[in-house]
């Protein structure tokens, strides 16, 4: 029996919320069962006993795990994620995230969107022309860039571009005059700083999406209903567009949803090479510095992003794939 969409929607939403709750709980206990004592991390060794006591109270470590857990959940619901203890000492985690999240959304978010569109088009065209020259060239392109280490490509690009365009920015997220610019100037400024890292980032994901689309479409083209579509008089691109692509998109949608994890965690190597302050670098920095409040928040953010993307993918699949309704 076919499912009702709203029923399906709320059911999946409930699953997402339950998962978020479990991950929140896991996050809480994860940092309390690790080898290093959370008290050793949060409370400096040089502090005297009175200060240690004050800090224990400040972080709530003087209370039972259950009380800490309830406080933790309450804080999360109110958007209180604590203060950074090493990455940006004393700053509210929300303040830190407010700086890094937009940078990542701009870089990796747009990079992914670009990669999806270009990757799907390239995958479709190479599958459609499979075995021909265009397919051979395209497939070579996918394989080379899929296998090439991203950091290597990024470094080579950094050196080439800065050599031939000496005034092109090599690092950072925006210029020092950014705050003085009008909206149009800000957009140009952002694009200028974002283009290099974004290009280095998308080249691999384009290849990945192309490979998935190509293989998926080739599979679909072997199905019997393709013969049927031709037999009933449809021709060429009409078959591709109306019959093949919608079905070939199913695994692509799933791959994109999985890939959304990258949208927030970013690409650490790219961000480091171009000194681009995104969430990937923040995660790396927080892990090295054992900044647990920041780590908790970033992990949570990434988890929610992946869950949300999967939720959207489920909704799209419901529309795209009739089998889901059954």
């Amino acid at each position: 029996m076919a499912q009702n969409f709203s029923r399906y929607f709320f059911k999946r939403l409930l699953y997402v919320l339950i998962t978020i709750y479990f991950i929140l709980t896991f996050n809480f206990f994860l940092f309390r069962v690790m080898p290093a004592d959370v008290e050793d991390i949060l409370i400096p060794k040089g502090a005297d006993e009175a200060t240690k006591e004050a800090l224990r109270e400040y972080y709530g470590l003087d209370r039972s795990y259950l009380e800490q857990y309830v406080d933790y959940l309450g804080g999360f619901l109110h958007g209180e994620l604590g203060k950074s203890i090493s990455v940006r000492v004393g700053a509210e985690v929300t303040e830190v995230l407010a700086v890094y999240v937009p940078n990542t959304l701009l870089l990796v978010g747009f990079g992914t969107i670009l990669a999806v569109f270009v990757g799907v088009v390239l995958g479709r065209e190479t599958a459609w022309r499979r075995g021909k020259l265009a397919d051979r060239i395209g497939s070579s392109f996918f394989i080379v860039f899929y296998c090439m280490p991203t950091f290597l490509f990024a470094l080579v690009m950094l050196m080439l571009v800065t050599h031939y365009f000496p005034s092109w920015p090599a690092r950072g997220t925006f210029s020092d005059d950014y705050y003085d610019l009008d909206l149009f100037g800000k957009i140009i400024d952002r694009i200028q700083y974002m283009l290099l890292p974004m290009f280095a980032l998308v080249i691999e994901t384009i290849a990945a999406f192309s490979i998935v689309t190509r293989s998926s479409l080739i599979d679909v083209l072997t199905e019997d209903y393709m013969v049927t579509a031709v037999a009933k008089g449809l021709r060429g691109r009409q078959v591709l567009r109306a019959h093949a692509m919608p079905n070939a998109m199913l695994p692509v949608v799933t791959t994109v949803a999985i890939n959304v994890g990258w949208v927030l965690s970013g690409s650490i190597m790219i961000e480091i090479i171009f000194s681009y302050q995104g969430l990937g670098y923040l995660t790396w920095d927080a892990v090295w510095g054992q900044d647990y409040p920041v780590m908790q928040a970033v992990f949570m953010l990434e988890t929610v992003a992946v869950l949300f993307a999967n939720f959207i993918a489920d909704m799209m699949l419901f529309k795209l794939d009739p089998r889901v309704k059954v």
Binding site: A98, V99, V101, P102, N103, L105, L106, G109, F110, I113, F174, D176, D177, Y179, D180, L183, K186, I187, R190
Partner: peptide
Amino acid sequence: IVLSFLMVLSAVPMRPFSDAAAA
């Protein structure tokens, strides 16, 4: 894409700097 670009741009710091222009 267009909408989210504008939304993200609206989230990045845009506070004008009141000191003398850098130029």
